[in-house]
Structures are given as C-alpha cells and as structure tokens.
Design a binder for these strands. Structure first.
Lengths: 338, 338
DNA sequence: ATCTTTTTTGCACACGTGTGCAATGTTCAT
DNA sequence: ATGAACATTGCACACGTGTGCAAAAAAGAT
C-alpha cells in the first residue's frame, strides 16, 4: 500500500481550534449557527491544516451529493462536446459537480450508466444520447435521481424533456430551398434513427409531399462526416442531380459539400444548395459557410440546470420547447431570404 | 421537500434474504468470503429490491472511491474532447468513474478544481490544461490524490507527466518544407504560451536559425480557428509572401488555409505549404487535407490510466514520452517525403 | 436586576458501508 | 473418530460528516 491516505478531518481541525467537532461542521455548513469568534478559530485551523470537507461523508448524512451525471456516446463530436462544456460550466456555477459517463462501449448502455449514477447517489442525470428503458424509471425515482432528457421523445415520470423545433426547422429548410429556386430536392441522413433525426426527416418529407414535390432520400451509416461524403456520392452521381440537399446534421452536410466540390466539381450554392442542422463551429468556417439551424446549447444548458435547481419541479413530467434559430450563410442560393 | 430519498440499503436486502448485513456487504465486495448459497439469496433479494451499493459509504470505509477528476478548459475543442472521450472510456473499463471539471471561468483555476477533487476524495486528477501551483502538491499528496499532467512541463512529486516530441516534430516540419522546395518560412502560433506550443515554436525557430534561414513569426489571440484566419491575413498580406507556414495547432492551420484560399486566392500547396499539429478530425476533411502530427490520444489515455492502475508507481515523479507521428496529406508540395 | 427570547454549543445518534476478529461450521488428513 | 486447516458468519467498530435536542450563554426588553 504505497501512500496510506491521511486526509485531515474535522476532528483534527477541532482539536487545533479548541472547539468541538460539531462547531467545525457548522462552520462549513451554509446557514448553520456559529459565532464569529468560533468561526474565525475554525477557519484559521482549517487553513493551516489544509482541511477539505469530505463530500462523501456529507453526501451520506445530508442525502445530497451535488453530483449530476452526464450520460452519452460520441463525446467528441462538435455538438455534443459543446453541450458538455456548457453543462459543466453551469453545473459548477450552481455548486454541483459533473460525472461523465461514456456509453460508446456495448457494455455501457444508458441503463448501466444510470445504475452507476445511482451508486454515487447522483441527484440527477442528463441523458445526452441514447434512451433509458422504461423499467429503470422506477429505480431512478426511488433513488431520488431526476432525469433530464435532451432531444429524446419518450417521457419518464418526474423527468424533463428538452425538445427543439426539429419539424418546423425542416419545413423552413424546404421553404428556403423553394424560395431560392431549387426544384430537385434531396434529403441526406444517417441510419441512427434518433428522435431528432426522424423528426427532421419526416417533416421534410411530409412537407414536400404536401406540395407535390418528390424528394430523393438517402440514409447511410453513423451520423458522421464520412457518412456525409458517401451520401454526397450517392446523391450526386445521378444523371438528374439534386440542386438542394437538406442534411439532418452539419457533420453530414460538411461531408456532402466536400463530395460535391471535390468529387463532382460542383459549385455551392450555384449548382447545389445545402442546409444542415446544429451550427457546429465548422459550419462557420470559410471552407463551408453552411446555412444551418443553431442548436441553442446555452439555452439547453440553462434549461437543464435551472430545472434541477427548481425545487417545485420534481413532480410529473415536463417538456421544455426550445427553438433552433436559422443561421444564414452562403450555402443556399440567394442568401438570406428574410 | 418533494421526494424524500428512500434508497434501498444493505440492511433491507439482508432482511429480505434472511442473512446478516455483513453477508450482503461481502456478496458485493470482490474477493470477500461468502458461501454460494448465501450469495444466491443475497443477489436474489438485491435484484428484487433494486439495490445499488452506495459508493459514498464504500468510499468512506474503504478509502477508495474510484473517482478520477479530469480538469481542463476549452472542453469542446477537437483535440481535448477526443482526449476526454478516450479517458472516460478507459477509466470506465478499469472500474473507475470520471468527474469533469471545467476551468473556463476565472473562478475555476486548476488549484480550485483540485480542491474540489479532494473534497470528493478522488484518487487521481488528470490535468488536461492549465498548471497547478507548486503549493498544492503537498495537499494533493497528503490526500492521496495522484497527478497526471498532460503536456505540462513542471513535475510534481508523485506525479506523472505525459510529454510528446513537440520539438522533434517541429524540426521534421521544417525539414519537410525544405525538402518540398519551400524557402520563405513562417511560423503561426497563438499567444497561449503553453509548454507544448512553446516547444514547437522554439524548436522550429532554432532549427531555422541553425540553417541560417529567416522565419516570419506571428503570434495572436487564443488557440482557435479565428486566430488562424487573422494570422493568415497578417502573414500573407506582405509583398514577399511566405511559401510555407508551420502552425502550432491544426485549428490555427485551418484558419490560415482558409485565409490563404478565400482572402488571397492562393492555391495550397502550390503557392503555400502548411503543416499543423494535432491531427484533429477536420484535418482529414477534403476541404483541408492537412499534413500534420497526430496527437496519440489512445496512447495518452492508455498511459494515463495504466499508470493509475500501477500500484508500484506512486513514488517519485515520472515522465512518459510519446511520439506524435506525422500524418501526410496534401498541404505540402511534393507530398509524402519518405 | 430579572425575565424572556435568541443564539450558541457539545453530545450522541444517524447515514451505509467494509472489515477485524471470535465463534461456528465444513472439509481434509490421519 | 479426532485434530488440523480452511471457509463462513455475525458483531461491533470505524470511516467523516450533519443535525436534533438539551443545556448553557448571550442579547434584548421591562
């Protein structure tokens, strides 16, 4: 056993300050009653000894840990890592700490991740991707674990869902293409089949059908740039090429755009208009200037953390609707249609 | 108080299984002695009740939490988010859990983050950016918190530093430019002044000086794509333009490349060769095809987590040297010089 | 100065787990 | 059958903190 841990405890501080161990505890408990004189003595001793309250013990006695689990896969994608950045910042600002659980591996389902969160008595879990089974709801509820589901379409008792206007955005995308004079429409998506992607896909297709417009539709692989490249090749290799592609995410769109330019020598937006979704950082890069819908990550983060801080919000399930505003850039003919 | 927590405890499981509370504990403690019959009864009862071991209590009694803190700023940049992805995956595979501490805000220094890690009795902290003050070393050591410093240049007792061959890479970059026939050299960096960036800068400049070659050198803003754009403008606006730019990170390089193409209508690599560092995902995108050095994130993650799992490694400080292999793409004239 | 109200303090219990140890039970060897 | 070795079990203590409560001290009102 290389380095036997000898952390300073409240008992050590009490001995040095000449007060009771309870006085030390009260000094570090917001709102507890302790005289100014005792407080000074305790703080001085704590500083001298390097005392740090043991949050494990505190969590045990107070039944509050301040721990919030962030659960998801593909943690390095632009949109997800941005959301993690925002959430950690806001959780910290509200006195909490985030544990990050990666569900990339097949033995790390969302349910397994939630169980791990319960083992650490996390007060909440923010599910960034994947969907909990209904059966785990009861376990979460019984352990006081509140669920925040981002872009998921199935409510759990006591949870909050944060949803975007995916369907509306897809309709706006279609209208933008038509206004730009595009007539040969295409839809590019992955095979992920997540609720958000499906909303965008279905709405785009339904709106086109309502207007009697055919849509060339391709779904392929995971939601990545590489899939976008391949989708571009599939869509653009035809004799009658589309002149507008709605890509359900920006990563796919960047791939489609690169395929169009580098494989087919097309000009964007003259030959092909492209609209994505997410507004990842790369969408604004000069190489893309992609018109897209901006994931309101700051609002999502604020909504999630505010709901967690709202003591009256623990009952029933709730849906928070947020809007993904359009970011006009240069990938659509005619530019800003406002 | 909306939902008073009523988690199932070992006591509840013991009552249901008709055994002692200690038998329950032993059943869930690897290596502890418990008969097959008792184990079955306990597991059955635990399953029926949805029992999850309380890791807070376990951490208190066993003085081991399995918690590892990941500490850093700019969590959403491609390289950092990739490293976080790898670290979380490997930590989980070794039975640990990661807490993620974001140091973007001015009130969240690395030292404050380390104190938070100590409060949760984390067994280790992986510092992804920023540098701990020397004074906190003793506190970490006393609380059994081991430090993993990634690309930092100052050792702390009992810590491990994982360093790359930044200097060597910069020399290879220079040699590659020369071999490609480039003669007007430039260096583009940010003002971050981190150990890795400085190594790359200093080595590139020193090697050029050794060969009697002048280098046009610009440093600007944070380490971002936007800084790269601005650096590109500064470097390329001159009458005598450089024909080769070593950018200390890929984000800067993408910005420089976009400035060259979109602001100065230059062709890469014909008019300008560019080499970056990191091999972020975007470096391989068709819009960039950037020649760069690949951050060995899998190796970094493995080295960090393996060191944490190595019980004999707790004493002294250590440096692990890893190599960033070159990724040849199309941003240098003449291509692969091997 | 006396009484009332408020603040402060220390004690002892709780939270939920792991484990040393004595007692008990089981298995193996003679 | 007996003794030795090994496995198992429950008890009671520890870990480090927050807090209810009774007692004491301090502050305010008359």
């Amino acid at each position: 056993m290389p380095g036997r841990k000898i952390s300073v405890s409240a008992k050590d501080v009490a001995a040095r300050a000449g007060v009771s161990r309870a006085a030390v505890s009260r000094t570090f408990t917001p709102g507890a009653s302790v005289s100014q004189e005792t407080r000074s003595k305790v703080l001085e001793a704590a500083e001298a000894l390097g005392y740090q309250v043991n949050h494990l013990a505190r969590g045990l006695t107070s039944q509050k840990t301040g721990i919030v689990a962030l659960i998801g896969a593909d943690l390095a994608t632009p949109y997800r890592s941005e959301l993690i950045r925002v959430l950690t910042e806001r959780l910290q600002a509200s006195g909490r700490v985030a544990i990050l659980i990666n569900t990339d591996r097949s033995d790390s389902t969302v349910d397994v991740a939630l169980q791990q969160a319960i083992r650490y008595r996390a007060e909440a879990a923010v599910v960034l991707s994947g969907m909990p089974e209904r059966s785990i709801s009861e376990l979460c509820h019984r352990n006081g674990l509140r669920l925040v589901l981002i872009n998921r379409d199935d409510a759990h008792t006591g949870s909050v869902q944060i949803r975007l206007n995916d369907a509306e955005a897809a309709r706006v995308a279609l209208a933008s293409f038509l206004r730009a004079g595009c007539r040969r429409l295409a839809l590019a998506s992955s095979q992920a089949g997540t609720p958000s992607l499906l909303d965008r896909e279905n709405s785009f297709l339904a709106e086109a059908e309502k207007r009697g417009l055919p849509v060339l539709c391709e779904r392929l692989g995971p939601t990545s740039y590489e899939s976008g490249l391949a989708l571009g090749e599939r869509l653009l290799v035809r004799a009658e090429r589309p002149d507008a592609v709605f890509c359900t995410t920006d990563l796919l769109a960047c791939g489609v755009m690169d395929a169009a330019r580098h494989r087919f020598a097309l000009s964007i937006p003259d030959d092909l208009s492209v609209i994505g979704f997410d507004d990842i950082e790369q969408a604004s890069w000069n190489a893309y200037e992609l018109t897209t819908f901006r994931q309101p990550v700051e609002e999502i983060g604020a909504a999630a953390v505010d709901w967690l801080s709202d003591r009256d919000a623990a009952d029933g399930s709730r849906i928070i609707h947020l809007t993904a505003p359009m970011s006009w850039r240069k990938s659509v003919r005619g530019g800003n249609g406002k």
